[in-house]
C-alpha cells in the first residue's frame, strides 16, 4: 500500500511539508473544539495557522473499505472578522479488498466571515464559503455557522449545502451532484487545555440536485487538547441509521499549529 503511495510525488511532498511545518517553530494556536463543525469566531488579524486533517471512514460487509482523506491547510486572519484558508492539497488513500490507491483530489480556498459574537450577542454567527478545484472536479460549499457559549459549554450548529461538478477534465464536467448536511456539537471545557463533548453529523445526498437521496446520521464523542501552541481535536462518529453501504464509523483528527 505505502510504496504505491510514495510513488506519487505531489502527495509525498505534501505529506513531508505537513510534517515539517507541523513540527517546526513556535506558534500560538487557537483551539478547535470540534472536528466536524466550525465555530463562529475567526482567527486574529495577522495570525497564520497550519492544520492537518485526516478522516478515516470504515465500511464493513461486502463492500469492505477503509478510506483516509487528508487535508493540509493554511488559515490567515485578515481582519477582525474575516479569515481565509488555503487548502494546499486534499488527497485520499483507499484500501479495499481489490487493492489500495492514493489519489490527489483538489486544492482550494475557504472564507469565513464572522457576523455576531457567541458570548456577547444573543447568538454567534458566521458565513463560510469554499471553492475546491481538482483535475476533473469543482466543488462549491456554503455554510451557516451558529454558536452559543454558556460559560464552559459551547454549542455549535452548522448548516451546509454543497454542489459538485465532475468529469474527465475541467472542460468536461458532465456529472453534477449535491449534498445538504447539518452538524450539531456540544463541548465542555474541563480546563483551558482540554475539552470534551459530542458531535452529530447528518448528511442528505442530492443526486443531480433534484431528488432527495440517502439520509445518513452519525454521532459520537469528541475531545480537543492544547499543549502550548499546538492543538489536536478528534471525534469518532458511529452511523446510527441504516444504509449498510455507508461507513459504519468515521474518525477525524485535526492537528494544528500557529506561526
Amino acid at each position: 500500500m505505502f510504496h504505491r503511495l510514495f510513488r506519487r510525488p505531489q502527495i509525498l511532498a505534501s505529506a513531508l511539508a505537513g510534517v515539517l511545518l507541523a513540527t517546526a517553530g513556535s506558534a500560538s494556536a487557537g483551539q478547535r473544539k470540534f472536528a466536524y463543525s466550525y465555530e463562529t469566531l475567526t482567527a486574529p488579524v495577522g495570525s497564520v495557522e497550519f492544520e492537518n486533517w485526516v478522516t478515516w471512514k470504515h465500511t464493513s460487509g461486502d463492500g469492505r473499505a477503509d478510506q483516509f482523506d487528508f487535508r493540509h491547510e493554511f488559515e490567515f486572519g485578515v481582519t477582525d472578522r474575516l479569515q481565509i484558508g488555503l487548502s494546499v492539497a486534499d488527497w485520499r488513500l483507499t484500501d479495499t479488498s481489490t487493492g489500495s490507491r492514493a489519489t490527489y483530489r483538489h486544492s482550494g480556498v475557504e472564507v469565513i466571515y464572522n457576523l455576531t459574537n457567541p458570548t456577547t450577542d444573543f447568538i454567534g454567527s458566521a458565513l463560510y464559503g469554499e471553492l475546491l478545484i481538482g483535475e476533473g472536479v469543482i466543488e462549491l460549499e456554503g455554510k451557516l455557522l451558529l454558536q452559543k457559549n454558556f460559560g464552559p459549554v459551547t454549542l455549535v450548529y452548522n448548516a451546509i449545502i454543497e454542489a459538485e461538478w465532475e468529469g474527465k477534465t475541467l472542460k468536461h464536467l458532465d456529472e453534477r451532484s449535491g449534498e445538504f448536511a447539518q452538524t450539531l456539537g456540544v463541548s465542555y471545557q474541563v480546563n483551558p487545555n482540554f475539552n470534551v463533548g459530542a458531535e452529530l453529523l447528518h448528511e442528505v445526498a442530492l443526486p443531480e440536485w433534484r431528488a432527495e437521496g440517502k439520509s445518513v446520521v452519525f454521532a459520537g464523542p469528541n475531545a480537543s487538547f492544547r499543549a502550548g501552541r499546538f492543538f489536536a481535536t478528534v471525534a469518532g462518529l458511529f452511523r446510527v441509521t441504516d444504509h449498510d453501504e455507508e461507513p459504519d464509523v468515521q474518525t477525524r483528527l485535526i492537528f494544528g499549529v500557529d506561526f
Partner: peptide
Amino acid sequence: TRCASCHR
C-alpha cells in the same frame, strides 16, 4: 473574541 476563541 481573542480570549474566547480558545477557552471560556
